[in-house]
């Protein structure tokens, strides 16, 4: 069954100077799948994620989670943000358990869950530190732990590694692959980085701007667990070339 579905979704911003952020987007993300939307800046991929998160509403079309229309945010659809968006006044543990606290989960259970998720992202020793004292990579681990702590139905990841240096990004990509293999959480991930998309995804959806819509679907058949070596295979390079050609407008778009 599809965890996330968008049917012919459009989103327009602004008053007199209207901007079409999404222009007839349809997609489905199956339970347990790792789907990556790749596209250039301004193609509307973050808007698409915000629609699934319930942080904004579509102007036209329908956005569903588990067969029901999305009406506002929910812990079932946890989000990891590019700018981390941690709460600087709360410790790492308090950040991680924020969603549980809002759900009325007791302190003892929150601590237990924080210990589990912090172990998952390798930050057990940093539970009592504040976000200010952490590196960018560590902060995003906290962001990921905060999302996993609420045991969500889907993880929505908005260019989560976009503001990290290349080495940290590669480390976190590997960790995310391992976590997904263990937890089997459904993931919808957006990025502008083709390599990242192909490394992480079961399926890549290619978005273009003007019009802002999904123009192609690329299945990624590489075995899991994956490592960096997959990037040197002919199949990887071939898919990368195809997506680049679509971005340049040199290749025919293959609608989903």
């Amino acid at each position: 069954m599809s965890a996330l579905v968008a049917s012919d979704v459009a989103k327009t911003y602004g008053g007199t100077r209207r901007v079409r952020a999404l222009d007839g987007v349809s997609l489905a993300v199956d339970d347990g799948a790792f789907v990556v939307v790749v596209g250039p800046s301004g193609c509307g991929k973050s808007t698409l994620l915000r629609l699934f998160a319930g942080l904004t509403e579509p102007t036209a079309g329908e956005v569903l989670y588990d067969g029901e229309p999305v009406a506002g945010p929910s812990r079932e659809r946890a989000m990891v943000f590019q700018e981390f968006n941690l709460f600087p006044w709360r410790t790492v543990r308090e950040n991680v358990t924020f969603g549980l606290e809002m759900a009325g989960v007791g302190r003892a259970e929150r601590r237990e869950r924080a210990a589990e998720t912090l172990a998952l992202v390798g930050l057990e020793a940093d539970a009592d530190r504040y976000p200010d004292a952490l590196s960018g990579g560590m902060r995003q681990r906290v962001g990921l732990a905060r999302a996993l702590a609420v045991d969500p139905g889907v993880l929505l990841m908005d260019e989560p590694f976009g503001s990290l240096d290349a080495r940290t990004r590669a480390t976190l990509q590997r960790e995310l692959i391992a976590i997904h293999a263990r937890e089997r959480t459904t993931v919808l991930f957006v990025t502008h980085d083709i390599d990242e998309a192909l490394l992480l995804a079961d399926r890549v959806l290619v978005m273009t701007d003007d019009p802002n819509r999904i123009v192609a679907r690329v299945d990624v058949p590489f075995d899991r667990p994956r490592d960096d070596d997959v990037e040197t295979t002919a199949a990887f390079v071939d898919r990368k070339r195809r997506i680049r050609a679509i971005f340049r407008g040199d290749a025919p778009a293959v609608p989903e």
């Binding site: 998160a53 942080l55 945010p73 659809r77 989000m79 968006n85 924020f98 809002m102």
Partner: peptide
């Protein structure tokens, strides 16, 4: 806005957004 969004996604809405996110921020 990102701080507000994080609050909303993880369940801080209405008075909770005020008490747990906006005032501490």
């Amino acid at each position: 806005s990102g701080t507000r969004d994080a609050g909303r996604v993880y369940g801080a809405r209405g008075w909770r957004a005020y008490v747990y996110v906006l005032l501490p921020a």
